[in-house]
């Protein structure tokens, strides 16, 4: 199947929203792949970070929001530190998570976390997980 590209997706509201929430210029990315090359989470990702940005450039809203990648990213800032164009990939990932969470769709339902886990993990783990995974 051909992926249709038109002004509808390349100038989409989705792209604007990502740029607004992340305060990043999506077009600044020149697809060098350094973020993907250094990402510690890449083996658990279905789409690499540089491809995520590419898909945002192409207006591929659905693919991006349904990807595992945006949830696997743990905001470790390795990509942010090394990006030659100064693109804050972590902020883009956060924007993508927020776009989903703000539709009242939780990635992890707080009630589904087993009691055992709750008592086992440190508070900082719980608080940050809930901050990142639920609305």
């Amino acid at each position: 199947m051909r992926a249709e590209i038109s002004i509808k997706n390349t100038k989409s509201k989705f792209l604007d929203k990502v740029e607004e929430l992340s305060e990043q210029n999506i077009y600044a990315c020149y697809q060098c792949g350094k973020c993907s090359a250094g990402c510690p989470s890449i083996s658990e990702m279905d789409i690499s970070p540089s491809e995520i940005i590419r898909l945002v450039q192409l207006g591929g809203e659905e693919e991006v929001l349904n990807s595992k990648t945006i949830w696997v990213c743990a905001s470790c800032f390795t990509c942010v530190t090394r990006c030659p164009k100064g693109v804050d990939v972590a902020k883009i990932m956060e924007a993508l998570r927020q776009i989903t969470l703000r539709k009242n769709v939780d990635y992890v339902n707080p009630l589904s976390i087993p009691r055992e886990t709750l008592s086992q993990v440190p508070q900082i783990a719980l608080v940050s997980a809930l901050r990142k995974f639920s609305g």
């Binding site: 792949g33 993907s36 090359a37 250094g38 990402c39 690499s48 540089s50 390795t78």
Partner: peptide, 27 residues
């Protein structure tokens, strides 16, 4: 096609962590 993110010594080798953006793989 891609930049290298990190190099480090591994025994007498140099480990290269790069990407091939044409396949989307971490190399």
């Amino acid at each position: 096609r891609g930049r290298v993110s990190k190099l480090f010594k591994d025994g007498d080798k140099i480990k290269v962590w790069g990407a091939d953006t044409l396949t989307g793989r971490k190399i």
